[in-house]
Design a protein around this nucleic acid. Structure first.
Lengths: 205, 205
DNA sequence: GAATGTGAAAATATTCACAGCG
DNA sequence: CGCTGTGAATATTTTCACATTC
């Protein structure tokens, strides 16, 4: 089920979904059945017809957790931060950026998009005011751990980390990393295989 | 084995590696044995001692494919592109950016870091001159597919895609996506679970 | 007929646990 | 001893295949 969403038809068969997503039809059915069992969809797919796109789209959102609102804080108004603000697209998915912070004095006070960059000292207030759950960490490597700790202390529940370091965080705080180097390595590995997928022994993901 | 690298000791035991990486020691040994069987490391770990960090670090690089040189083209000199250039870190890992292209006339000719932004028409020449393998696609969503097609035509082997679309590419071209929305969704999902990891049935990754 | 839901089978991945080496 | 390499035992995931429903 993972990535998906998309589509736009009225109903879809598991086979079509599977083809589009690169999974077997049985896999799709299993996953969708799971959604139903979790109580997110009132009814399963119809035999001979398929799954109701609209119903399942929102059911899936429910399972994934993007039916909620996720007040999100952006830290770092450098290039990555600006790129994210420019992208905007995730407001539609429940991620609502409530404020932008940066440790760099020179950036504080500047206007970026509809935000005015705040100093780091605004963190606690932000956290309380907006009932913060998620923070996007778009700061340089060296600042990342320090900021992460502050975020944990401020009660953030999840961090999306763009810095190429493994963050140490308080128990109960989730971290997801977006690391370009890692992505490039994966790509390189995929290309390297190409010919020699060889007799796989047991290799890790 | 996946992410790893790091370390800095002379030898490491599978247990320590496992702890650091979040895998079982047996898992680590299996993976490392795999590296040996692929012929990348001349000798395995030493009983009672562990694995030679240096030897295995390069052996792993070999397996992953970052012992090669990967001439890399950056397309898009917007915020993401600039952030990537500023990051720089991957030159050390074999990814060498050979040129920066952008479709936007206004950016062409501008100097960013050590590069002068080239027009898209420079693609073919670049490809030939530098024996291009990888392209980083940091352009707006709407331009992504079109550029991707040009890249395929120019003989690129892999694309690292930052645009939030699923690219259609020629058979044999690998695509790795870096999609912030997806990352955020994953994070949201992880947080949502938290308490209710519930009786798992079979749910997809 | 077309498509679901699901047990049972096959394939994969992970862990255990232990012989054997330095 | 501590630690590797690995077969055997488990657990997990994916696929098959089929009775069942619309």
């Amino acid at each position: 089920m993972q990535v998906l969403i998309a589509a736009g038809e009225i109903t879809v068969s598991s086979r079509k979904l599977g083809e589009a997503l690169g999974y077997s039809s049985a896999q799709v059915r299993k996953d969708l059945a799971w959604v139903v069992h979790l109580g997110r969809a009132s009814e399963g797919g119809q035999s001979g017809v398929g799954y109701d796109c609209v119903a399942f789209e929102s059911a899936i959102r429910g399972v994934i957790g993007i039916d909620r609102h996720w007040p999100t804080l952006l830290i770092g108004a450098g290039n990555i931060g600006r790129a994210l603000l420019g992208y905007g697209g995730f407001a539609a998915q429940g991620f609502r950026i409530v404020s932008v912070l940066d440790a760099d004095e020179r950036l504080v006070g500047r206007k970026i998009g509809r935000f005015v960059v705040q100093p780091m000292s605004a963190l606690r207030r932000c956290s309380r005011t907006h009932n913060l759950t998620i923070a996007i960490l778009a700061v340089p490597r060296d600042a990342a751990q320090s900021v992460a700790s502050q975020l944990c202390a401020a009660g953030v529940r999840g961090i999306l980390n763009f810095a190429p370091v493994r963050l140490c965080v308080t128990e109960g705080v989730s971290v997801t990393n977006v690391d370009v180097s890692v992505a490039l390595e994966q790509l390189a590995m995929t290309i390297s295989r190409g010919e020699a997928q060889s007799r796989a022994m047991n290799g890790a993901a």
